[in-house]
């Protein structure tokens, strides 16, 4: 085995750092070009609707099903713990706050990265490897505008909507378990929830979180597809990268956002 010297390791570290900064720069230029530049081919609304369908509507099933189950589990666990303190009625408050502030945006973003994000990366990567992007360029259509921009916007729009739907379905699932199954009094379940949930601080902050997550996840997914090596191996690597980077980014950002929104400073 060849031994690498310390200097060599430092060099590799430096190179990794330079690569990371270069990628960040490229992805920023990519984003700006796609979002603001001169609009070109096709009816933008038509393109957007098509992407909203494949990014948003197609993710609806997994979001709704996961939402119901997570709400039900939260309700069940919360009830068990809260009943030790004799305050079972607070289960509504607990389920609602957990979903609105944290689980709604975060779990939706993770599912979104797995379902829609990986699909976006694979689709764009495939277009690149089959030279469809190049041929668009040669036809005189900017692929950033025609392919990338509608997908970015579809992601930005879909994610907050999906997160809100997730929360509602989850709360509904939680209510079902608490009221119909565990026998919490319906009136106090909802009253407790309404007293403790503030529209501005809980609902809107959750929506803001999901907007940020949607932005980051879609950006990562689309860029990875556009930047991937145009081979089948490169596409599969890029797809994995999308899910890993997007998940890590969501969890990291969630901490920062939570500290900013709900932390006392």
């Amino acid at each position: 085995m060849r031994r690498t010297s310390t200097l060599e390791r430092i060099r590799l570290l430096g190179r990794a750092g330079i690569d990371a900064v270069a990628t960040l720069g490229r992805s920023t230029v990519f984003l700006l070009h796609a979002l603001f530049g001169r609009s070109s081919a096709g009816n933008p609304l038509q393109l957007l609707i098509k992407q909203l369908y494949s990014v948003g509507v197609m993710s609806l099933a997994i979001i709704v099903v996961s939402g119901i189950f997570i709400g039900m589990v939260l309700s069940l666990q919360g009830f068990n713990i809260l009943s030790d303190y004799g305050s079972e009625q607070a289960v509504g408050q607990m389920v609602a706050l957990t979903l609105l502030r944290e689980l709604g945006p975060v779990v939706t973003a993770l599912l979104f990265a797995g379902r829609a994000g990986s699909a976006l990366t694979a689709e764009i990567g495939n277009m690149k490897s089959t030279e469809q992007l190049s041929s668009l360029e040669m036809i005189g259509v900017d692929p950033l505008k025609y392919i990338v921009a509608p997908r970015l916007w579809a992601g930005f729009i879909s994610m907050p909507l999906l997160a809100v739907i997730f929360s509602v379905v989850g709360i509904w699932g939680g209510a079902m378990v608490a009221i119909d199954w565990l026998g919490v009094y319906e009136g106090s379940f909802w009253a407790n929830m309404q007293n403790s949930v503030s529209f501005r601080e809980d609902v809107l902050n959750g929506v803001i979180k999901s907007i940020v997550f949607g932005f980051v996840v879609t950006w990562i997914a689309v860029f990875q597809g556009y930047d991937c090596e145009p081979t089948s191996e490169g596409i599969s690597r890029a797809t994995t990268k999308t899910v890993v980077y997007a998940s890590l980014a969501v969890l990291g950002l969630d901490f920062i956002l939570t500290a900013l929104m709900f932390g006392d400073f």
């Binding site: 098509k50 369908y53 948003g56 909507l161 999906l162 309404q194 529209f199 809980d202 609902v203 929506v207």
Partner: peptide, 25 residues
């Protein structure tokens, strides 16, 4: 396609409305 997207947008707005009125009172 368009109907699907329309329903999706509607569901999202409805969900937000539910959160506002029913959940946060």
């Amino acid at each position: 396609l368009e109907i699907g997207v329309g329903l999706f947008l509607l569901a999202g707005l409805l969900a937000l409305l539910l959160l506002a009125l029913r959940v946060s009172g």
